[in-house]
Design a protein around this nucleic acid. Structure first.
Lengths: 108, 108
DNA sequence: CTCCTAGTTCCATAATTTTCGAACTAGACG
DNA sequence: CGTCTAGTTCGAAAATTATGGAACTAGGAG
């Protein structure tokens, strides 16, 4: 696998609305989240478009989303790479309707 | 009145989702917007709590919200100061449900 | 007209965020 | 074991954003 194998993820009760909004208030990160709405992806897939983004920048982008509670970033069970997942249910539990309206607005 | 009397405001079709989210992704600005949800206010009222914020900083905070399309900042018709208004309808037209879910989540 | 009030704009500085190379980590495969 | 792959972390530099004093603006009151 890669990296430290297990990264810290905040609990839903520790999510902050402004932190979530700030994480999504960036076009690149918003695009990634919109893609993840269609299902989990490996990190590489998230950057199929603009493939010239260096690894460290990718990691940082994901870190901001992960620390806000927007995504999970877990080791792939049987295989290389990492699996990124939208934390739909956790976000819905904490901020009802928020993610849905953002995703709907993001595809205009 | 004060300042340049008429400030530029973007049209709803020029709103950008990530710009709106970025504008709201700041605790101070989010608090201001939550207050404005209860009705228009003069700028002074927006800062009744933390009254030690200098004028230029207040103006800048308002500018970010205004340029994102979140608020209107207009001269008060008969009197001093400026009237700040949440652009509820314009935001709803462009990003349905977004503001409502943010406001609901902001009072937790 | 002058002064007062309320707010914007300008500008420079401070703080935060982004970017990306380089070093490091961990599993898979041979 | 060594190597390849995929990704994280570190650190420093670049870019963006925030802060706040000073100058400026506009209306209202005297």
């Amino acid at each position: 696998m890669s990296g430290q194998t297990a990264l810290p993820h905040p609990e839903p009760e520790d999510f902050s609305l402004s932190t979530v909004l700030k994480a999504l208030g960036d076009p690149e990160r918003l695009t990634i989240v919109a893609q993840l709405a269609q299902g989990p992806q490996d990190i590489g897939e998230c950057f199929r478009d603009n493939p010239n983004v260096p690894k460290s920048t990718r990691s940082h982008l994901m870190k901001v989303l992960r620390e806000a509670g927007v995504i999970r970033n877990d080791p792939t069970p049987n295989g290389p790479g990492r699996r990124v997942t939208l934390r739909r249910d956790d976000l819905e539990a904490r901020f009802p309707g928020l993610l849905a309206s953002i995703l709907a607005s993001s595809q205009l």
